Computed example of a mutant assay.
Amino acid sequence: MKFSCTFETSSERIRLVNVISPLLKAGYKLISQRQEPSENGGNIIHVVASSQGDKTQADLIDDISGIEGCTLFNLEIEEDTVSSPSAPVKKALDEKSVLAAIGAQYPDITGVVRQYEASMTSDNQATALHELGRKVGGGIYQRDYALGSPLKMSTAISRELVPALKAFSRVKAKGNSITLVKCPFCQSSGTTHSGCHFVVGYIEGFLTSNPAVGRVSVEETSCGAGSTNVCEFIIW
């Protein structure tokens, strides 16, 4: 399995060697690597590598997610074929593998979600991330809040949803409005905000799992992708 990936590091001190060393230790063969400064004070690191042995996509997710201080914003996997072994194909990661990785690493899941997003074509990103978010949000409600007495929506937002979202970001809430300050899911998205579809799904899944709330709809009213990283959502 050959793949190419691009990371942005959280500071200038995290350099190329901090990325390629874990990959080498995990058994990957490096083909090429390149580093350049990012606009945010860190580094952009491009790596092309191939797996050796019987590494799977799930293994790749785990190995890349274990690289500290980096956000992955592009991943392309080359399909292994006999007739055209060098033809690169953007291959969507398996949702079950992604959910397993999220379960193992929660709440440190930003990198996994970004990898899942990067593995898909733009046509599929919004729907897939929304569905992934619904499953994760619903699972977190069932794990952490279902044993208590179900709360009505306004109270559930302030007492349950806001603390749950604080695992990822600084959160502000006013009535049925939620704001993520420095939203990590669109931090490196340039002008696209498909990562926020994960947040929309997460909120819907979390609140819908509450029997006192039932069905809800969530809409992102403002996205800070490529600028402030301040994202606002309305719930009704």
Rank of each mutant, 00 (worst) to 15 (best):
H197R: 13
L99I: 01
G111V: 09
D80P: 01
Q52N: 12
S21D: 14
T81Q: 07
R34N: 15
S38D: 04
S11R: 13
S209Q: 11
Y106P: 00
H130Q: 12
V199L: 07
L72I: 10
P211Y: 02
Q57V: 02
G205F: 03
G224T: 01
T56C: 07
V112H: 00
T179P: 03
G190E: 05
E76L: 14
S32I: 11
N18I: 05
C186P: 02
I102W: 05
K29H: 11
F185V: 02
N210T: 05
S83N: 11
P85C: 07
V47I: 12
K96I: 10
S158A: 12
G69M: 05
W236T: 14
V216H: 09
S227V: 04
F233H: 07
L16G: 02
V17S: 15
V112I: 15
I109Q: 02
P211D: 06
E12N: 09
I20G: 07
K135V: 07
I102Q: 00
C5D: 00
E232V: 10
Q115R: 05
S4Q: 14
V230I: 15
R134Y: 01
N43M: 09
I45N: 04
D108H: 11
S119V: 00
N43Q: 13
I44H: 04
T127P: 01
P107H: 08
E78R: 14
V136N: 00
S154I: 04
N43R: 10
V171Y: 03
C196E: 07
S217F: 13
E117C: 11
A101P: 06
P37L: 07
S177H: 13
V199K: 02
R143A: 12
T208H: 02
S51D: 03
K96P: 01
A146G: 04
G190T: 08
N229M: 07
G53A: 06
G205W: 01
N124S: 12
T179D: 06
Q105G: 12
I67L: 05
P107I: 02
A49C: 04
L16H: 09
I31L: 15
E219L: 13
D108K: 14
Q187E: 12
T110S: 08
I20Y: 05
